[in-house]
Design a protein around this nucleic acid. Structure first.
Length: 452
DNA sequence: AGCACA
């Protein structure tokens, strides 16, 4: 205990304490900055920053009460207010006598992040979008989401604290990129702290929790029944375990959808290995095989519910197939194995549908897909390294620009002349996971820091 | 801009 100043010449709303309460601090104010601020007045023995709902308050504890008084006194009569990074901070005695527990779990680095999604439509953010966002920093093992008083929250598990830290520092306080969300969803801010968890317990794959280390984990019973087919929508869905093979159903197929059209559409996300088309329940379905699950997830997340042609034609519904490797017996206009090295094996001539000439679409159709092509991240889109550039440069394959060369070799089917106001290469993606408008147009650097 | 504790 320090000797108490017996001179009440400075009366403030709070009785003196060697702990000072600061407010109006800039976000992400560091302990070092607090120490710098207090050092001229005495020995700072403890600090706590990021306090309060807005995390813009802090405490400084001096070794001696007189030092705290000196600081308060100084700024009470100074013409220059106390500042941190040019921002005026307001000081007063704390109503506590010491800083307790300077390090909370939220401050101790761990491999699991506690993410609070803030915003009007926070709970419309799907677990898939979160997965995509956090995968930019490393392999995401598990995600659980839940509703608390703090709002919509998620726990995101990485392999290690370093990866989690890079994600935290890049994403904390940023918004989820708009193009990952439906247009009518208002901006959602991420607030991130560390969780004390080290390994989340995920019993089922569901719209609320995922275990990406175990794609064949049973699907939650609650997610199975009643949900039937495609629940589209903005929030959780995806009832089946992820797979590298997608099952596509095409609704409202006013125009023929050919193998080549499917190949082009799905190649935007990664190499398509095999496609098999078949009729089911009077509609057309297709199985599309990628080399890896991540690519399929990306394609599904982006394409689900969207139409191949403008005007609501040929709407895609995607689910995960239980297949992992399709058996293509013969290459024809309904099925093809693109991995077969000898092109002579492939019959490029659709037999039932006349192949239409391809011009008329303002450049190669492939370019329409520049927004979501795969690129370097192809093999492991979740392994993109590199925290330093911020996630501007690290975000998933969605952001990559380069286009697979082979795209230009494919001939999208052009529907009959009655084709409505769009060319077939142009996907309309109004919904969640949609490619940003610029992306569809080809020129797009969506990962600007100012978009976060 | 007003006192910490997923």
């Amino acid at each position: 205990m320090a000797s108490v100043s017996s001179q009440p010449q400075f009366r403030y709303t709070q009785p003196p304490s060697k702990v000072l309460h600061l407010r109006n601090l800039p976000w992400e104010c560091t302990e070092e900055e607090l120490i710098e601020l207090g050092k001229p007045f005495g020995k700072v023995v403890n600090t706590k920053c990021n306090v309060g709902a807005n995390r813009n308050q802090a405490f400084i504890e001096f070794a001696d009460l007189n030092q705290a008084i000196a600081m308060i006194s100084y700024y009470a009569s100074s013409s220059e207010p106390a500042q941190v990074r040019g921002k005026t901070v307001y000081l007063q005695y704390s109503n506590r006598q010491e800083i307790v527990n300077n390090k909370t779990t939220a401050d101790v680095a761990g491999n699991v992040l506690l993410v609070t999604i803030e915003g009007q439509d926070a709970r419309l953010v799907s677990i898939d979008v979160l997965h995509l966002v956090f995968s930019a920093f490393g392999f995401v093992h598990k995600i659980t989401t839940f509703e608390k008083t703090a709002g919509f929250q998620a726990l995101v598990q990485f392999s290690d604290a370093e990866t989690a830290t890079s994600a935290k520092s890049a994403l904390d306080g940023r918004i989820i990129p708009r193009y990952l969300l439906s247009e009518n969803i208002s901006p959602c801010t991420l607030r991130i702290t560390y969780s004390a968890h080290t390994d989340l317990s995920v019993k089922f794959q569901s719209h609320r929790s995922r275990d990406y280390t175990n794609p064949y984990l049973p699907v939650a019973p609650s997610a199975i029944d009643g949900s039937g087919q495609f629940s589209l929508g903005l929030d959780g869905k995806k009832l089946e375990p992820e797979s590298n093979v997608l099952l596509a159903s095409i609704e409202n197929m006013q125009y023929a959808v050919t193998l080549d059209v499917l190949h082009m559409v799905f190649s935007a996300f990664g190499p398509v290995q095999k496609i098999a088309m078949f009729d089911k329940n009077g509609g057309l379905q297709a199985l599309i095989q990628y080399p890896d699950v991540q690519t399929a997830v990306l394609a599904k997340g982006t394409l689900e519910g969207h139409c191949i042609y403008d005007g609501g034609f040929c709407k895609l519904h995607l689910s995960y197939s239980r297949h992992t490797d399709l058996s293509i017996k013969v290459n024809n206009d309904r099925s093809r194995d693109y991995t077969i090295p000898n092109p002579a094996m492939v019959n490029p001539q659709p037999s039932t549908l006349g192949q239409q000439p391809v011009q008329a679409m303002g450049g190669p159709a492939a370019h329409q897909y520049n927004g979501a092509p795969y690129a370097s991240g192809l093999q492991q889109p979740t392994m993109l390294p590199q925290p330093s550039g911020g996630w501007t440069s690290t975000v998933p394959a969605v952001a990559q620009q380069s286009m697979p060369v082979q795209m230009s070799n494919h001939y999208p089917y052009i529907p009959p002349s009655s084709m409505p106001q769009t060319n077939p290469g142009m996907m309309r993606m109004p919904g969640q996971g949609g490619v940003p408008p610029d992306a569809a147009g080809g020129a797009m650097p969506p990962y600007r820091s100012n978009q976060m």
